[in-house]
Write a protein that binds this DNA or RNA. Structure first.
Lengths: 333, 333
DNA sequence: CGCGACTACGTCAACGTTGACGTATACCCG
DNA sequence: CGGGTATACGTCAACGTTGACGTAGTCGCG
């Protein structure tokens, strides 16, 4: 800016005024300043601009355990949509493991983001309280916060899993295999809870040996399913706890030629679920809407709304496509 | 920092020293400073830190035409991987249309990113030259730059499309339908070019009426395919120019009961391609690797390497799964 | 013509941090 | 004991920008 001012032979303040469309600059001077800016390839430094603490940086922080999973992508899309409407940029950071999370989040805060959306990896987020008190709204997604009072946007995992399981029970299934990721993940635990609740309602015992957890990808889920289906008393139906597991399960059923004999309901919808044979019945939830909701909550707080922090729980929807409507085939009889 | 210093009764500089792990501070003072920082919930302002022009902001800018598409997600994943290794954050911005792109990119530059990765939407990027001269490396992805000399990381679209088309020709197909997005998109044009090159090699005429472009999503692609397959002289094979089109094509073939009669090769792999009946033959390219490559190029330039800007073209791979190996069924004979 | 109001500027400080450089005290060595 | 030097600080300016406030010149009006 100094260079531009020198080039035109005016003061730095006039350049600032032109840049911000303030008046108090004659048309002729403004013209010359604009031309000098173009010539010199001037670009305002928004970091310096956001230095005064009152000012906004027009940047919101988004922390994800890892970039590039289907869930996170849809989430990012939803958040991005709202952020763009609000003229804000999204500063993304992969928090990775719980240990790195704190470091990542404080790095985001050090960049003076106007708000923070967190998909939690760690256990305690009390360390974010100073930011919150400094007026930076924090919204948690997919898992409630611990150690801090903040908004959370969640999926009704338990109800979805209950509905999915009830759907299988309604077809007469009593031996339902469960395949999912690590139970320490909040959503996984919730889903298992819902599954068990459905079993209880129908007074069906929960069989530990039909549950295979810790499958972190489709490959691991496939092996878990092969194992499950190859056991002495295989399940007549499968309930998979996320779309990676669902895809793994389909691969396993394919291999064993059981696609039309073992029923399956999967949590999370996926784009080609209707193209698989049989089409996959899923518990779908609108992940983009979760992102939009979280972003909206955040911007509302930034705009001054400050109700007590609360939870927003979004519903799930069972989409029956075929795989979940396969009736029981009792091999033993 | 001033508050912390006042709280401890020391100078602001000592706080700075502790923060940066410099020596020249006694253990006792350091201890008291650390404690005060914890008490006051102090967080360093990295914006102010990056104000001195020589300093890096540890932030790289990534501009995408839109967030949340499969291509971009994988790309982000790859870029994020490298950025994390380098301790940098990724500031993402959706550039949307060409008109908004300039605005978006300058906003990123105004935030003083250390480097810029651009998936171009607009036609001319000459306006980025000042940044480049200021030492901010710019890397283009998926489309070469115009109006500026910069690195580009591309997929060998033409060769991939050539190989895919040749594969269908080898099965005897002579009437190959093409379904894709708008031809003004670089990758689409390149793919069509490769397709036509393959036809020329085998001296097969390119039939304009078998080409349906402008399909921006699976839905539109499906309708294009239904139209194409319902025409007087339908194609015996389909070549789809991206995964959305491939999915749309599969839906169309399903509806018409032609999945086993019309061959299909699709550009872009997708997760469940092997689960569809018949499994989908695709031209696959490693999008994450594109992201990693672009990020690596950028960080290398940031580290001082400055070879002449060039293009890196990554290869494609034909994955034969079944749909592309269906031989010609000549309905007319 | 004197006064107020307006226009078109300019100056200065502050935002939070760090590099460059200054200084007071203690300590060691010849 | 003088001089060097190491330690543990402190002061100041600068980064780029803008809010607050000052000022010189012009114009209009009574």
């Amino acid at each position: 800016m100094k260079d531009v001012a020198a080039h035109v032979g005016t003061s730095i303040k006039s350049v600032s005024r032109v840049l911000n469309g303030e008046d108090g600059v004659s048309a002729a001077t403004a013209e010359r300043i604009l031309q000098a800016m173009a010539e010199l390839g001037f670009r305002r430094n928004d970091l310096a601009r956001g230095l005064r603490q009152s000012d906004r940086t027009s940047t919101i922080g988004l922390a994800l355990p890892q970039a590039g999973t289907r869930f996170h992508d849809s989430l990012v899309h939803g958040i991005d949509e709202i952020a763009r409407q609000q003229g804000s940029f999204v500063l993304t950071a992969s928090s990775g493991t719980a240990a790195r999370e704190r470091e990542t989040l404080t790095a985001l805060c050090s960049r003076r983001v106007d708000g923070l959306i967190v998909v939690p990896a760690g256990e305690d987020h009390g360390f974010l309280r100073p930011e919150q008190q400094a007026g930076v709204p924090v919204v948690f997604v997919d898992r409630p916060p611990h150690g801090i009072a903040a908004d959370a946007v969640l999926t009704d995992h338990a109800e979805g899993a209950r509905a999915g399981t009830a759907h299988l029970l309604r077809q007469g299934h009593r031996r339902i295999g469960v395949v999912g990721d690590d139970e320490r993940i909040f959503s996984v635990a919730e889903r298992i809870g819902g599954h068990r609740a459905a079993l209880r309602t129908e007074q069906v015992a929960y069989a530990e040996e039909l549950t295979r957890l810790g499958a972190r990808c489709a490959e691991e889920a496939m092996h878990a399913c092969l194992d499950l289906l190859g056991s002495g008393q295989p399940p007549t139906a499968l309930f998979t706890l996320n779309n990676q597991c669902t895809i793994g399960a389909v691969r396993a059923l394919r291999r064993l030629g059981l696609t039309r004999r073992v029923a399956m309901v999967g949590f999370d919808d996926f784009e080609t679920a209707d193209l698989i044979d049989p089409p996959v019945t899923v518990i779908s939830h609108d992940v983009e809407e979760i992102g939009r909701t979280a972003a909206r909550l955040m911007f509302e707080r930034m705009a001054g709304h400050s109700p007590a922090p609360g939870r927003t729980t979004l519903p799930t929807k069972l989409i029956a496509r075929g795989s979940g409507e396969i009736p029981v085939v009792d091999e033993s009889s």
